[in-house]
Each structure stands twice: as structure tokens, then as C-alpha cells.
Nucleic acid binder design. Sequence first.
DNA 1: TTGCGACATGAATAAAATTCAAAACTTACT
DNA 2: AGTAAGTTTTGAATTTTATTCATGTCGCAA
Lengths: 309, 309
Amino acid sequence: MSQIEIRHLRTLVALRETGSLVEASERVFLTQSALSHQIKELEGRLGCSLFLRKTRPVRFTSAGNRLLELADEVLPRLHNAELDLDRFAGGQSGRIIMAIECHSCFEWLLPAIDAYRNEWSDVELDISSGFHFAPFPALARGDLDLVITADPLDEPGITYFPIFSYEAQLAVAKKHPLVDKPWVEPKDLADEVVITYPVDRERLDLFSGFLEPAGVEPARVRHAELTTMIVQLVASGRGVTCLPNWALHEYLQNDYVVVRSLGEEGIWPTLYAAVRKDQADAPFMNAFIEVAKQVCFANLRGIVTAELG
Amino acid sequence: MSQIEIRHLRTLVALRETGSLVEASERVFLTQSALSHQIKELEGRLGCSLFLRKTRPVRFTSAGNRLLELADEVLPRLHNAELDLDRFAGGQSGRIIMAIECHSCFEWLLPAIDAYRNEWSDVELDISSGFHFAPFPALARGDLDLVITADPLDEPGITYFPIFSYEAQLAVAKKHPLVDKPWVEPKDLADEVVITYPVDRERLDLFSGFLEPAGVEPARVRHAELTTMIVQLVASGRGVTCLPNWALHEYLQNDYVVVRSLGEEGIWPTLYAAVRKDQADAPFMNAFIEVAKQVCFANLRGIVTAELG
DNA sequence: TTGCGACATGAATAAAATTCAAAACTTACT
DNA sequence: AGTAAGTTTTGAATTTTATTCATGTCGCAA
């Protein structure tokens, strides 16, 4: 089947450059005899001779020249591929396909990706929208490489890097009765309309970390896609919402809404980058997480450093 | 040293196309075990894994994808080269570097080359001007592939194909005394100025086939490069010359000169194409000789079919 | 659980590439 | 011509590598 091997191309190139089997053999770190056998066998398989040996330097036949042409096309590409692979092997390059559990995280993730791409231009980057339902199996089997999550489950083969912590705050209209309370208790929301992103409750701090533990169900849950839309509904008194403090910051500045902590201590989720163990030490991956942290701390108001929980 | 082999690229492509080691192994005519070993070893050498096996179809890592990219660049080129080499092996293609001993032969050789090139466009063709002195050693060692000669020496490893025979005729001015003789004898030229191409005497029919056997030396030998120039000198009575009848034809038509045979029978050299034995049966080579003959018989007046001498 | 399909593994085997040692050519020089 | 130096060829021995065979393991679905 496969007649020609890389080895043959290397031999022919060495032969072209040196002009004799003896010198070519030094070049490819083989004995001259090996080269003689090697080429003889190739010529046999190809059915034509590749060069004429009775001259110095050797003369290539048309067939030999055709193979040299092939070598000139192939060997540099091979070399480049090997260089790239060395970088993959050294963790200098790789692929990061991400998914986010935290809906508002797009706001800082996109700038983080942009910043990272400047330094690590040949790392393949993408955000996958396809694995919202079950990101962890996808991460484990390699469909994803990084998941932004607030719930570090203790899965084997997954490493979690903390990014930052924030307060999940309740936002209410300025004239809302809860404004008078220093903080919110779960039962305060029993009669409220709660406005959320259209995602599972487990992925919402308000439910998973506050209402469900207390067994409280709000009067109604209403969905909106965009953060501004949610805040607008809240500001006009159609309900309350729970958002990260850093996402609410600008609306607070503009005096649209009032925010209160959930419970006396407040709820302080931590965002983690979940990564497969085999990539956890790769420089390109660590660099991404570092860049993400830097971008967040530079741009988001109200977040704090997190320790590994 | 050489990490990646063609075989590896083929395996990866099969794997991409089938999605599993089992099917890929059928595709490359190996056992599943062989592929497992092969890839494991490559991964070890490269220092990174190439694909994730726990999924169907298998997922390639960035390194795996990089190798597939390489395969897509390399394998088609390899295939093309193999197709070309098949044609070399089958004698459907090759190289013809020619030299001519017969100085006037450019006149028919160039049109012959043009005609041949139409049909055999990827045969490498060239006329070498570098081996006028010793074309046969050059032919034997492969610097040349074809020599046009009138003297088929019995060299081993060389095959001669006759192209055509012609008469080597003496051209003289219309008022020259020799016009009165039906043919020329060697001694008739003892007092003449002979005009020739500036080449060795052995390559001139007049000397090698007529004067030297008779031990006659002309009064003077004068050289000119171009056939027209030679004929002009002859026409104006500055000397006589010997040229192939087909080269003289047009001047005869125009009544510039008169021609006479050398001896009663005339001298009838035959032009041969001398070819190395290993190329003597190659279709591309036979085709060239056939085309050359056709072109000659179509364009040259006065030539006759030759038999192998 | 069990069974099935797919991949991994280790030892055995087959195949190959390479080396060694010697011979056959080539070339240049005397 | 004869010889010496350098180069390629050759055949057999050897080493290395690729492949197979026979199991073993793992994940997944019934």
C-alpha cells in the first residue's frame, strides 16, 4: 500500500544536499549501507530508479526529482506540525471550549476572552451554548474544556479554580415596602413576583441558596432574557429580582432600584472555573484563568477575592 | 527523531472517518490492537494525547486536529506523487535531454520537440549544448538521454534507432568547374577551400566519409556558423561545402548553387537516435522517436527511410 | 447484574530496518 | 596497466519495530 515513507523523503533530500550516499548517511544518522538498502527497496517498490550513482554528485532521474518535489512540499509542513505539537505537549497551546452556568457571566467572560486572545492567539477559544443542561459530563468527556459554575461538585477528574465572590442581592423598586428592612428574609418573598432569567431554578442563587432551603415559594415567577429588561420591570414595581451585585452596580448608580442583602449575612456565591484534571496544570489554561480574574477585578465593582471552598 | 509517519496520518484520517478504532482498523487493514498500540506509541512520543476514546465518535484533541490538518495537507500530495511515479515506472513519462552531433539537425529537431510536447506534455525536454565533445559517456552516465548521431558505435548499454538517411552533397557555385563533372572525387577537392560548421572533422561527413579515407586534404578549411552564411560564401565562389541534401533543398530551388554527389554512389549517412538501453523500451521515448521521424518525413525533402545499420 | 461492544495490554510473532563485513566498481594517479 | 582511495552493492546477522493473538478492562444499556 503505502510505498513512500517520510524516511525516504529525508534520505533523498540529504542525498540532494550532499551528493553522495556516504555523506547523506551521516546526515540522517544511518550507515551508508542502510541507505543503499533503503533506496534500493524503494526503487523496487516504485518500479523505477531514482538517481544515477555513478556520478558525483549523484544525478536524480525524473522520478527522483518528482520525489524531491514531494519532499519539499511535505517536510516543511511536517516540521511545522511538529513544532505546533510540541507546544500542545508543553501546554503552550490548546483548546478552551467553555460553558457558563451563571447567566450574567457573559458580561465579563467576553472581555476576558478578548484579553486572553491577545496573548495566546493560537489557543482555540469558543463558548458553547449547547451544554447548558449537563455541562459536567460534557466537560468530563471532552466536549467542553472549562465550565464557569458556582457549585463545585466533588467530581473526580475535575479541578475547580475560584475566580471571584460576589453578593447575590435582591433588587426592589424604590418605593417597595422591603426598602424599609435592613435585609430580606425568605418569607418576605412569599407574596412577591420574582423575575428571573429563563433558566432552571438550581442555577439561580435566590432559589438554590435562599428560598428553597427555607421552603418558601414566591407568589409568581416571571422570566426575562436581558438584565436591563429585568431591572426595568423591577424598577416599575412589577416584581423583585436577585442579581449579582456587580451586575446591579450601574442601575444602583443611576438610582433605578434599591438593593438589599438576602439574610443578615447576605448570600456570597463564588464563581469557579471547572477544568479537567489533565488540563489543570497546562500553562495555556492557567493563563486563561488568571486573565479572567484580572479582567473581572478591573471591571466589576463589588466583587471580592475567593478562596477555594 | 522522526516522530510522525505517514502511517499515523492514515490511521488518524481513518479514525476521523469511522469514529472508532475498530472500524478504522478495518479501513487500514490492521487489527484494532495494532491501531491501539500504534497510536499509544505516537502519543507517547509526542507527549500529548490525540483523541478521547470514551465517546462515539471519538473526539480529537487540539493536537489530534492539528495532525489531521497535516494529514489533509500531506496525503493528497503524496497520492499525486505516487500517481506521477506510476507513470514514470510505466514509461508514460520521463526526461529527454538531448544532444546532437549533426549540426544542421536543429532545423528538424526543434519542430519535432514542439510536436512531441503537445502529446507528452509532462515529459521533461531539453537540448543540452554542454556535451558536444563527449556525448556518449554523458549519455551512458545519464547526463543525457538521447543523442542524435550518424555514427552508431557499438557501445554496450546504448541502443540506436534510425531516424532517416540523407545524401551528404557537395554544393558549389554555379560557375564552378566541378559543375561539369557528374560526381565528385576526393582529389577534386585538393585545391579547394572547404567551408564547414566550426566543429570537429569527425563530425563532418565530408571529412570522415570522403576526404580522410582517401587521404586528401583541401587547400583550406574555413568556418561559418550559419547554414545560410555558408551557402552564401559558396554561391559567391569563395569555396565549396558539404551539407545534407535536405538542408540544401531550398537553395537549390532558388538556383543559388549547384550540388554534386560525393563519389558515384554518393554518401548516404543515416541519423540515429542513441538511447540508453534502460530507456529504449519506454513508451515516452519510443513516442519521441516516432514523432521525430514523422516530422522529418513531413518537412524535409530528399530524405529516405533508413534501416538499422 | 449481566452482557455487549469498544478499547487496552502484554507476550509472542512476524516483519522491517539497520548494521557488519566483504566485495565490486570508479576514479585518479603513478 | 596497476594500485590505492573512495563509493556503492550485497548477503547474512542482528536489532528494532510493527503487528497479532489472546486476554483484560471499562463503560453502558438491558
